[in-house]
Structures are given as structure tokens and as C-alpha cells.
Design a binder for these strands. Structure first.
Lengths: 151, 151
DNA sequence: GCGATTATTGCAACTGTGTTGCAGGTGTTG
DNA sequence: CAACACCTGCAACACAGTTGCAATAATCGC
């Protein structure tokens, strides 16, 4: 391998932009980072470490390497990390303009997080001394899948 | 013990109402449950298992018993459980009228969660099939303490 | 292209939070 | 008072994530 044969599995645009984004941080664009970032960018919801491991094909990456790739993505600002109801980290690709305000739907059943494009809500007034960095509106309940499965 | 001597450390009203709340569920008002519920009700922010253990005086309660008391409080609807940024559970007393909408401030630094009384924000429109149970507005940044300590 | 440099990877062992099973204790009820 | 159920404590476990160190491979300069 290592010829100039890009995998056809992803759209060329995505492949390219993932690599560019990684290089722009000054770090190496390794297969591990590329695959993980592409996966996150194409995922409709935030993914757990375990889900990512599965999606990449089970023996593709070392457990620890994946953890480190994810840590690095978060540090570099290319991804976000949240903890779900089962106290498991979930990762999602950061969007270009970087949201200071965001809306999510969290399923209490399966723990998945769905990114809604919906509105940035309030202009809150904080207790003194508190500095605000992000606003997140969390809608909680059951996702469509879980509503159907457990009626 | 077990005479009619309430500990003077808490306000009589709180002591009483904690016991009443517990009895109302049909369960026993044991010292463990009383102490934990009183502590949660008097806490300004959500507490972790560890913090509660400390606050109760170190060798007061078995680790596992505390976990079980907390689980029971959550199941009974007397407390809420959230996970903080360090993927640690944090517990807070449920308020009487039970909030369907709530506002929190989460410190990205220390992970603590502060309950703001602030407004119930938006009337969102969800994708089809999703059922909404709670709305949470999460403000994230640094709390007063952490802003001061790490300037 | 070819090698040196050094970031990245993989392995193994570890940490910390939360959970489960079971025996013993404590309160409640008839 | 005795039986019963609930609660507690201990020990062992499970799981997600972390750390240290040696081996590997991506990038840079030639």
C-alpha cells in the first residue's frame, strides 16, 4: 500500500477536507486520525468510543490509540466531547463556524445525542464571577427509534 | 438512640420534611437516607458520590450503601442524577413541583453543576417520532471559584 | 528517492467510579 | 415474641478511560 489510491468508500471532498483540517493544526495526518475524523463528520449523532471502534472494523485500531486520537481531536478543536446518561464519552465533529450555542436531543433510553440545528436560545444573566463560554440546550426524552421499540 | 432528639445541626423544618418525603414513598426512613437527602437539599450545587461521602464524615457510611441510597433517591424521584465533564455522577435534590425545564451552569474546570432558577427557554420543534420529556439549558464556562484560581 | 527525526502507535498494566452477590443486622408487623 | 422484609456492609467484580515505555512510520531535508 501507500500508492496514490484513495479509498473510494468516502466522498473525495470529505476525505480531502479531513486531511486538510488535520494538517492545518501542524500535526501528522495519520490513517487513524483521518478515518476517525471522517467518521465523525459523516455521523448523524455523537458516537461513543465503542461505536467508533465497531464502525472502523473491529481490529482496525488499538483501543488506546483511538482514545488518544479522540483526545487529540478534542484538544485541536476538531471534535467535541460530551458524556451521556450512561457516563460514557460521546464525540462529534466540530462544525466550521464553531457554535457557542447549540441544541441537542439526548435520548434517555439509548443515550445517543442528536444535533439539532435549532435556535440559540437565551441571553442569561449569571451569578457574579461566572464566565460563560458555551450555551447548550438539551432536549431530553426518547428518540424515534427507542419510542418505537419500547412502546 | 432513637429517642425524640433531633440533631440540631439542620433546621427542624428540613429534617422533618426529609423524613416525611422518604416515608411517603413507603420506604424506611433510615439514618443513611435521611442524612443524604438532607445534605442534598441543603447543597447549593449537585454533589458527587465522593463529595457526599466526605460531607457525611469519612467513615460514616459504606461506599456501596451510599451508592444504593443515591440510586434509591433517584428512583423515588427525590433526587436527580447527572454526569459531569469528568464522567462522574452528580446528585441534586428534586424540587417540589418537579421541573420539566431547568437551567444549569456547568463548570468546565471543576465539573460542578449549579442550579439556576432562570427561565424555561424554548418551544422547540422536534424531528418526527421524538418524544420530549425534559428541557435543560446548560450554560458552560467557569464558575466563580475556578475563574479566580486559574486566571 | 533515502535516511534521520520525532510524533504516533501498540501493548500491558493500572486507576477510579460504579455494580453485583451474599451474609448479617435492624426495624416492622402480626 | 417471632417471622419477615428491608437495609447495610464486605468482597469481588465490571467497565471506561489513563499512563509508561518500547517499536513504528509520517514528514522533512538532502
Amino acid at each position: 500500500m501507500m500508492t496514490t489510491t484513495p479509498l473510494p468508500a468516502e466522498s473525495p471532498a470529505e476525505v480531502d477536507s479531513a486531511a486538510v483540517l488535520i494538517r492545518r493544526t501542524g500535526a501528522r495526518a495519520t490513517p487513524a486520525r483521518l478515518h476517525v475524523l471522517r467518521l465523525l463528520r459523516s455521523a448523524p449523532a455523537a458516537l461513543s468510543h465503542h461505536e467508533i471502534e465497531q464502525a472502523l472494523g473491529n481490529p482496525a485500531l488499538d483501543r488506546v490509540t483511538l482514545y488518544r486520537v479522540l483526545d487529540w481531536l478534542v484538544e485541536s478543536g476538531l471534535a467535541h466531547r460530551n458524556t451521556d446518561a450512561q457516563r460514557v464519552f460521546r464525540f462529534s465533529a466540530a462544525t466550521r463556524g464553531e457554535h457557542a450555542a447549540h441544541t441537542h436531543f439526548r435520548c434517555d433510553d439509548c443515550g445517543r445525542v442528536f444535533c439539532l440545528d435549532a435556535a440559540p436560545p437565551a441571553p442569561p444573566h449569571l451569578p457574579q464571577g461566572f464566565s460563560l463560554l458555551r450555551i447548550e440546550l438539551d432536549l431530553r426524552g426518547r428518540c424515534a427509534e427507542c419510542s418505537g421499540e419500547h412502546p
